[in-house]
Simulated scan of single mutants.
Amino acid sequence: MALQVGDKIPSFKAIDTNGATFESDSVVGKQSVVIYFYPKDDTRVCTEQACSFRDQYEDFKALGAEVIGISADSVKSHQKFASRHQLPFKLLSDSDKKLRKLFGVPNDLLGLIPGRVTYVIDKDGIIRLIFNSLSGKIHIKKALEALNNSL
């Protein structure tokens, strides 16, 4: 069953861009978090989305929020993607798609492409926004609006 607005984010672990184990409890429940699932590193829309989060990263930090990107790409792919585009936030590898299943992220385009969904979680670990759209850039605007509204 997919997570809904008002649900508490379950604890999870994944390997981050640095090859280290990331534990969600290190940030969830301590500060606001924006978790965005995206289909694939270095595709046009995914790159636009990541770079838009990068370009407004200080706005997220000013609101007390951390940004985390998740896709099924390998750690090595994430490292290249993050380095190439100077991404200041963590990317998590979900190669076994366990996180996608845990959150209930649907596939898009007749089930052919992994979904693009953004979750805004407040400092208590409660989901305040779930935004599902193939358009990458609008996710940043919606996430910032949700963070501003929850302050």
Rank of each mutant, 00 (worst) to 15 (best):
M1T: 08
L109Q: 13
L3H: 00
D96E: 15
K76F: 04
T47Q: 10
G125R: 02
G19W: 01
G6D: 10
K123I: 11
R84F: 09
K13S: 12
I113P: 06
A2R: 06
L102N: 05
Y57D: 02
G115Y: 05
K142L: 03
D41G: 10
D96L: 02
Y38S: 08
I140F: 12
D59S: 15
K137R: 15
D124S: 11
K13M: 05
E145G: 01
F81E: 02
T43Q: 10
R116H: 08
I121H: 07
K98V: 04
H139Q: 12
K137H: 11
E48Q: 14
D108K: 04
L112K: 11
F103T: 07
I113D: 10
H85R: 13
K123M: 12
Y36G: 09
D7H: 09
P114M: 04
I138M: 00
F12Y: 09
L129F: 04
L110I: 14
L109G: 00
V75R: 04
D16P: 08
E58R: 14
V120A: 06
N148I: 03
T43G: 10
A62L: 12
K90Y: 00
R100T: 15
P10D: 07
K61E: 07
G19T: 00
G69A: 15
A62H: 12
I68D: 08
V75T: 08
Y36Q: 08
A72E: 14
V45E: 13
S135Q: 15
D94P: 04
A14F: 06
P88V: 00
L92F: 06
N149W: 07
I121G: 05
